[in-house]
């Protein structure tokens, strides 16, 4: 039977939490094995980064949402579970594709981890409709209270974790591939993020894209340098 928007949202939330029940707050045994197989074990760096980003996220979440700042910690914890789950799935897929088990360069890349975590957090906030292109930034209190305006809609998360949109874009497709149970709405949400990045955000003046384009074109020659506007 058709669901009301509130019921649909609550079903989505229950599904997300259910899917992550078996995922721990720490890397699984399999994931820890991938870490140990690295030339440099990234475990400590991963945990330290999560600690730092949890503080940043919770603080900014509280500033945006208001007095219910404890929700920020809950969202982050769910995001971390999803981040670990997706990372493990990605590595399994890469292991099969590339026939390698040492992913030291990838797993010691801070940008990769920040991008993956940001995507997981974006999925969590989209599930709770705190990041929504449809509602224009408003979400309804689950207990049926007054609508509360939030400013958590993408690309809010990029500013919180200090991540260029260009780098965030890289994980989206692999994220969707690694988690086939993502709902149609969430896939659509991520696709909208992709389109926003491709059409607009990746071309902002401070984007790393321009430096990469310069390098790609053999960089250096003054007459080959284009302004961001062009």
């Amino acid at each position: 039977p058709p669901q009301t928007p509130i019921r649909a949202a609550m079903t989505s939330i229950q599904q997300l939490r259910g899917d992550l029940t078996s995922s721990g707050d720490q890397p699984s045994t399999n994931l820890a094995t991938y870490f140990k197989n690295c030339t440099v074990d990234p475990m400590q760096a991963v945990l330290l980064r999560l600690e730092t980003l949890e503080q940043a996220f919770s603080q900014r979440f509280g500033q945006a949402v208001g007095p219910r700042c404890t929700l920020g910690c809950q969202r982050f914890k769910l995001g971390v579970r999803l981040y670990y789950k997706i990372m493990e799935a990605m590595l399994k897929s890469e292991e099969k594709r590339l026939s390698v088990q040492n992913f030291s360069k990838l797993l010691n890349d801070s940008t990769f981890h920040t991008s993956l975590l940001a995507c997981a957090l974006e999925v969590v906030m989209a599930t709770y409709e705190e990041s929504s292109f449809k509602t224009g930034g408003y979400n309804h209190d689950a207990a049926g209270g007054d609508p509360v305006k939030t400013d958590l809609c993408f690309p809010w998360i990029l500013d919180v974790v200090d991540l260029p949109a260009f780098d965030f874009y890289k994980v989206i497709e692999s994220f969707i591939k690694a988690e086939p149970t993502l709902s149609k709405d969430i896939v659509k949400h991520l696709e909208t993020c992709e389109n926003l990045i491709m059409e607009r955000i990746a071309w902002r003046t401070d984007s790393p894209l321009f430096e990469l384009l310069k390098q790609e074109h053999g960089g250096g020659a003054a007459d080959q340098v284009e302004t961001p506007a062009s």
Partner: peptide, 21 residues
């Protein structure tokens, strides 16, 4: 896939996107 357009080829994955190939 819910009509999502997957653009990566079979020989492309997260390792290539982060220059880890």
């Amino acid at each position: 896939s819910h009509d999502y357009h997957f653009g990566l080829e079979d020989h492309e994955g997260i390792s290539e996107l982060f220059d880890c190939d």
